[in-house]
Design a protein around this nucleic acid. Structure first.
Lengths: 182, 182
DNA sequence: ATTATTTGTTCGGTTTGACGAACCCGTAAT
DNA sequence: ATTACGGGTTCGTCAAACCGAACAAATAAT
């Protein structure tokens, strides 16, 4: 996908999300609406100042203009995943997720005791959680995407909507990586 | 800080990290070196195609060009750590490490089979590894700081010196977070 | 129905970024 | 000392991004 096509889509997406008309955004950003029109139709090659003005007017981080909308969920079972060092049979690593350059990641160890399920309020917009189960079985995820994971499983899901954690039978231990935008 | 100043610094930083001369990068990116020179000295306002060519030539994600410009050990046993939500007895989390704002973190699942120990060459300067043991006992760390960890233990150490991993008796599973500077 | 307003696109004109060549400077080789 | 080479900067030219205005199309107001 061409970089300008990505930006075209991003501007369009973010503008509509912000409920702004093309003309209104142009005014707010101090640009000619003809410029915006050309950008959104992919017939442009904007420079940095222009992009900066757009990002500011949309009140979004600069780099959001280069991200194509993507699904933030991924579930990797302990048996799945593409091994990296295939040759070394005694050292198999699986890349679960690469850290995008514009995020921060905090590591938590979580002990879940069985019984009540822990509800969590939505974290800041754009937050993603990475759960890596260590022992025990855990049912967790956003309300519309609860998954049950066991030892070695990896589950990644959006943390900016309500979500919950629940140990299934016994005590469960997992590593939780809170992945938030910067 | 002006957006073009950020980009100027980013290009310069990434280019030197890649050990490329300004002329070499220009050739690789298919740009005039005068263009790069002007950008790195902050006297430019590049468009998207130019930035794209630079990012590709540097082999870095596109948005790294918009980022404005570290290694200790810590071992946290599974019984240690300060719980955050002390009240919730069925949900105990321990913050193992906070992500500094200028780093990237990639997640790996590692399966270690017993026997030979896996030697690892030093990663780029400033790299830190976070190991979270899931099952089995593992002896790992830099040559001068090998530690043996078991399920639930967390060990953080420098990855920019030679280090090794070795499963002690049976197969071991751990989550490895590669924490590298940007 | 008619007018007025708003949305987004298209058209010349001006500004400016990208290019290539010439340039200066430091280092290495002779 | 002199030549050669590679590093990065400066300068004139050309293409293109940005602008403003004029444009059609759709909706709202009268």
């Amino acid at each position: 996908m061409s970089p300008n096509a990505i930006i075209a889509a991003a501007i369009c997406r973010e503008r509509e999300q912000a409920q702004l008309t093309l003309s209104a955004l142009a005014a707010k950003a101090g640009l000619a609406k003809s410029t915006l029109s050309q950008l959104e139709t992919g017939k442009g090659n904007p420079n940095v100042e222009t992009l900066w003005a757009i990002a500011n007017a949309l009140d979004i981080p600069f780099s959001s203009l280069f991200e194509s909308a993507s699904s933030h969920s991924a579930l990797v079972r302990s048996c799945e995943g593409v091994s990296l060092s295939a040759g070394q049979s005694d050292f198999a690593t699986v890349l679960l997720d690469k850290c995008p350059p514009d995020r921060r990641r905090d590591l938590y160890r979580v002990v879940l005791r069985p019984g009540s399920s822990r509800q969590s309020k939505p974290h800041p917009r754009g937050t993603v959680e990475h759960a890596f189960s260590c022992s025990g079985r855990v049912r967790l995820g956003p309300v519309d995407g609860i998954a049950e994971i066991g030892p070695g499983d990896y589950y990644r899901y959006s943390g900016d909507v309500a979500h919950s954690y629940e140990a299934v039978d016994g005590e469960a231990l997992l590593l939780l990586v809170m992945d938030s935008p910067r």
